[in-house]
Design a protein around this nucleic acid. Structure first.
Lengths: 125, 125
DNA sequence: GTTATGTGCAACCCGTCAGTTGCACATCAG
DNA sequence: CTGATGTGCAACTGACGGGTTGCACATAAC
């Protein structure tokens, strides 16, 4: 439900693996973003069908889907011998929260914009 | 500031280099996000000073700053022999827009949330 | 002018990752 | 059962990117 929390970032101190990583990492690849969007527009699809819309092999798409799945951006559902991937949204909110939370740091209006709590902070120690 | 457009995604078509790429790419690296946040919290700083807060060399930080700069997330300003990097916000909005625009596709509520922005309410500026 | 501090450039490891291919396994249709 | 379609796994390759070091250049301080 895209609930923006505006926290979405535990204290890192300069370095440390945070859950945001796999999320932004998943979103970093253009193909992955395309896959995600296509999934959104067309509804749940199998990797095979999905791959037909891209200039890549099924396996490549599968890899992307795995990445997206680990990031919590898509969910896989088995239907017989087929596996349908469906876009999910919760995780996306975290990315938005970080962006908004970060921008709030130097743009007060951003925080008001989203009605976020000023607890936003992930600063490097 | 932080004007969320909720469109921000031209037809994906399956492939094609879009400006969003360098943006998400810049945000993909955890160190880069840390640098960005630190820049936000501490205000403009030189690469050298900035590097002291990280377990990396100045050069590493410089590279990240270059990436952030190309993505339009920070701006460099020369001051004598020093160069101060300052966080900027416009570009961040594009990322938010994409996320919101994407989520809106399969989550109507997201659009309402985005509705607090397409041109909007207060952030628009 | 000399020294100290700060930036810029280039070359160089090394790991990771996108994408590939090949093949084995599972399921549906006849 | 047999063949067709779909998925899963593993190994391999090539490229890109993060991080490093070393050194040259620029500016500030004395």
């Amino acid at each position: 439900m895209l609930r923006v929390d505006a926290r979405a970032s535990d204290d890192p101190g300069v370095t440390g693996r945070r859950p945001l990583d796999e999320l932004f990492d998943a979103l970093a690849d253009p193909t992955r973003r395309d896959v995600l969007q296509r999934l959104v527009h067309t509804g749940p699809q199998s990797a095979t069908v999905l791959a037909e819309a891209f200039p890549f092999t099924r396996q490549a798409i599968v890899k992307h889907l795995k990445a997206l799945e680990e990031a919590g951006l898509v969910a896989a559902e088995r239907a017989g011998r087929e596996v349908h991937y469906r876009a999910t949204t919760e995780r996306l909110a975290e990315a938005v929260a970080w962006l908004l939370g970060t921008s709030a740091g130097w743009d007060r209006r951003a925080r008001r914009l989203a009605g976020l709590s000023p607890t936003a902070r992930e600063g490097a120690g």
